[in-house]
């Protein structure tokens, strides 16, 4: 029961931060609230048991992304960061709540949280959970899946990050000189 209450509280915090991001007047405070939103989201991930995801969310979302946004904002003029909010289109006002209702309706058919018989838990997860320590001597199953069983995947992700860094350096250097 306390588990349920805590999760509800954390989701409310996330909701509050998300709505405050849209209601606030200056872009800088909106960036700070976005960072706090990421932090609350990290706590939610940790409560749901996904500690690795929580770690990445806290470090990337609340740390690095906030720094990137702030450094970008330092280069802009005040007239660029003033927020104009045009009234939302009618299709969005009617359509989005309808879509949300539809999603909640469909969510009834999802397997319950932590159900061992759900399709995601009977396909290949048992193999990883039972054999990964004997195979790799690594107690953290996430690390052994990421770096050994799916090493090729991780290699391409690393290439993507490297390419992003190179592209950023090239684009920004061109506009400077």
């Amino acid at each position: 029961m306390t588990y349920f209450v805590n999760i509800t509280l954390l989701f409310l915090l996330v909701l509050t931060a998300a709505s405050a991001t849209f209601l606030v007047k200056e872009l800088i405070s909106s960036v700070i609230i976005l960072g706090s939103y990421s932090f609350f989201l990290a706590i939610v991930w940790a409560w749901l048991g996904a500690v690795d995801v929580a770690f990445v969310e806290a470090v990337i979302g609340a740390g690095l992304a906030t720094v990137l946004f702030l450094v970008t904002l330092f280069d802009t003029a005040p007239k660029d960061t003033r927020l104009r909010r045009p009234p939302p289109p009618l299709a969005g006002v009617i359509g989005l709540p309808l879509l949300g209702f539809l999603l909640l309706f469909v969510a009834n058919d999802l397997p319950p949280f932590g159900d061992p018989a759900s399709p995601a838990h009977v396909h290949i997860s048992p193999v990883y959970l039972q054999q990964s320590y004997a195979d790799t001597l690594t107690p953290n199953v996430v690390a052994s899946v990421l770096m050994d069983y799916r090493a090729f995947d991780t290699l391409i992700e690393t290439v993507v990050i490297f390419t992003a860094g190179i592209a950023c350096a090239l684009l920004l250097k061109e506009s400077g000189s």
């Binding site: 690095l64 450094v71 506009s175």
Partner: peptide, 15 residues
């Protein structure tokens, strides 16, 4: 990569 992106964002307007 992280350091390089932030440095190029912070210093791109100066020679």
């Amino acid at each position: 990569t992280g350091i390089s992106i932030v440095i190029s964002l912070a210093y791109h307007d100066t020679e």
